[in-house]
């Protein structure tokens, strides 16, 4: 298992992902967006940051990068892709996931810890975790997930909500919602389940020293699922 960590101009969480994968023992490589060839990899992450300074809209300019075209190809072929924070904004802009991320309703940049409930385990990043509560840090000003009513209904009906913000008691209340996202939606998946995006940062909580280790729940499987050994191919 070898994971590509994409770096666009202005990405800032790629080294946090690299550190997380080092902690978890997952082979990884930071890949510059202009050189992205994901055929050498088994999975990809799109980290957070402020690509292209968030000019125009968060993720808008990055969607035209060669790396995003490559992501689209890899997503179509079923590669597991995790997009966090600005990465989530990029893949939504690129149309790989439904909806869009807009300014937090409170207009504040929120740097805090949130609790999410796993709403779909039909993705490699949440497999076997249905209903579990995960505590992860957030750091964003434009994390309010929105969609038109028809898209929202489709996302809910087809079970594309991967994660929902909840309060301390595990209920999806306004108190548990840090940014005003519709339906308390913290993360969504594509219909195939191989692409997952979320605003929180799993890479920043993989060891107790960082205040929590629930990120392992999302990233740890990468360490377990090794690439098939050549010797098994006859």
């Amino acid at each position: 298992m070898r994971v590509a960590i994409l770096r666009y101009p202005g990405t800032w969480s790629e080294r946090d992902f690299a550190h997380a994968f080092s902690v978890l023992g997952v082979e990884h490589e930071i890949v510059w967006h202009e050189d992205a060839d994901l055929r050498r990899f088994d999975a990809a992450v799109v980290p957070g940051g402020f690509t292209y300074g968030d000019y125009l809209r968060a993720g808008a300019i990055a969607k035209l990068s060669p790396a995003t075209a490559e992501l689209r190809r890899a997503a179509d072929e079923g590669m597991p892709i995790l997009a966090s924070c600005n990465g989530f904004q990029i893949v939504c802009e690129a149309g790989l996931l439904p909806g869009a991320l807009v300014r937090n309703t409170g207009l504040e940049f929120r740097c805090d810890w949130v609790t999410m409930r796993v709403e779909s385990d039909a993705t490699p990043f949440t497999a076997g975790a249905l209903g579990e509560l995960l505590r992860m840090p957030i750091a964003h000003g434009e994390g309010c997930w929105v969609a038109d009513p028809r898209t929202l209904a489709r996302v809910e009906d087809e079970g594309l909500v991967a994660l929902r913000y909840v309060d301390a008691r595990g209920s999806a209340t306004p108190e548990g919602n840090p940014n005003g996202s519709l339906g308390n939606i913290a993360g969504v998946r594509n219909p195939q389940g191989n692409v997952v995006g979320l605003m929180p940062h799993p890479e920043r909580c993989v060891e107790p020293l960082l205040g929590g280790s629930d990120g392992i729940r999302m990233l740890g499987w990468l360490a377990a699922s090794a690439r098939p050994a050549l010797s098994t191919i006859s």
């Binding site: 807009v102 309703t105 309010c144």
Partner: peptide, 10 residues
Amino acid sequence: RPKDEVRDPQ
């Protein structure tokens, strides 16, 4: 402009 149905906190 944001669509009419999209909230505009700004």
